[in-house]
Design a protein around this nucleic acid. Structure first.
Lengths: 185, 185
DNA sequence: GACGATACGGAGCGAGCGTTCCGGTTGTCA
DNA sequence: TGACAACCGGAACGCTCGCTCCGTATCGTC
């Protein structure tokens, strides 16, 4: 991967850039031929560099997921876990809703290919943030990491059907906090 | 449609029954050939009775949507709009999560083919329930019918990723109610 | 500049799916 | 019962899409 021919390295970069753009717009649904054309490259060239469309998708998306994970780890030591958790939650939703590739990736964050390195890191960091927020009493205790991931997927669906409506995520955030009357009965 | 040949009427019923079963299981994604095979019928026969797969889907689903609409209308005169609204919301989610056809239909309840009769009735009745619940102070005032539909779609996504977790819908319901601390600032 | 290795492009393959077409069958009615 | 219209089954079409194959072009090296 380092001692590639110059044109190969160039094409690989072009494919990655095109894939990032195309996946961001239409998610996994974008035909691979479109990516190849956008990159100014033949379909065969794409497959020389990535064994499958799915692998290309992972390559594009895992970097961003890793960014999310690092961001979460950096926030894990904050002294106000409640606010930090909410801010992080909202930020992840907002970022993802602007990028269909991340939506599609996060949507199956309970699933198959997400067990890989970056995915697992993200899960662990998210769990950490959640646990601390719960310990601080800022988030209801009756949900776990998987619940939270499902809620993220749900928020992304909401965002898809009512784009740009920030306050709907707020609805979920408020529900996450918990309501006194309901908790006691 | 009434003076059809006996075998035609029989086949039409078989197709509808098969479609109901197949769509309920896999939603719109089920291949039409599967429905035909399940009905013990050729693909051509399906197209004799319904102009397209989409039309067949609508025929199957619109009946249930109409049931939802009628149910909502019946509840519109209740004297406890808050509880009624929440119960209805939860019931719709639960019913839909057991039937992928309804999921797929509700998921685009903000969209195209839903402008038809039953879809519009459902929308109107849902809006009515929401408005009354808001007037009773049981639901935060800063959301409208479209927001609510988006939240339903979101809940269905949640349900898909964390099946059978009743309390996650509760999270959204609580958020819908609104949280005092948040509302006041 | 020439040669071998490497990479490229895009036609082509195979699978899946919605839809159409038509030769054969079956119900209906006189 | 005979004949015609209505209806049926399922092969076939057209399209999309992921992926492969191979003749050709390009790069790196001596």
């Amino acid at each position: 991967m380092e001692k590639m021919r110059a044109d190969a390295r160039r094409n690989r970069a072009k494919v990655l850039a095109a894939a990032e753009e195309a996946f961001a717009l239409d998610g996994l649904a974008v035909p691979l031929d479109d990516i190849a054309r956008l990159a100014g490259v033949g379909a065969g060239t794409v497959y020389r560099h990535f064994p499958s469309k799915e692998a290309l998708f992972q390559a594009v998306v895992l970097e961003r997921i890793q960014q999310f994970a690092e961001e979460a780890r950096a926030l894990a030591t904050a002294e106000n876990p409640g606010e930090v958790f909410v801010d992080y939650f909202v930020r992840v939703i907002k970022q993802a809703s602007l990028n269909r590739a991340i939506c599609d990736a996060l949507a199956e964050s309970g699933g198959h290919a997400f067990k890989a390195g970056a995915g697992e890191e993200f899960r662990a960091a998210l769990d950490e943030l959640l646990t601390r927020a719960q310990a601080a009493g800022a988030v209801r205790p009756d949900i776990d990491g998987d619940d939270l991931r499902a809620l993220i997927a749900g928020c992304l669906a909401v965002e898809r059907y009512a784009p740009g409506s920030r306050h709907l995520v707020r609805v979920v955030v408020d529900g996450l906090r918990g309501v006194a009357e309901v908790q006691t009965r």
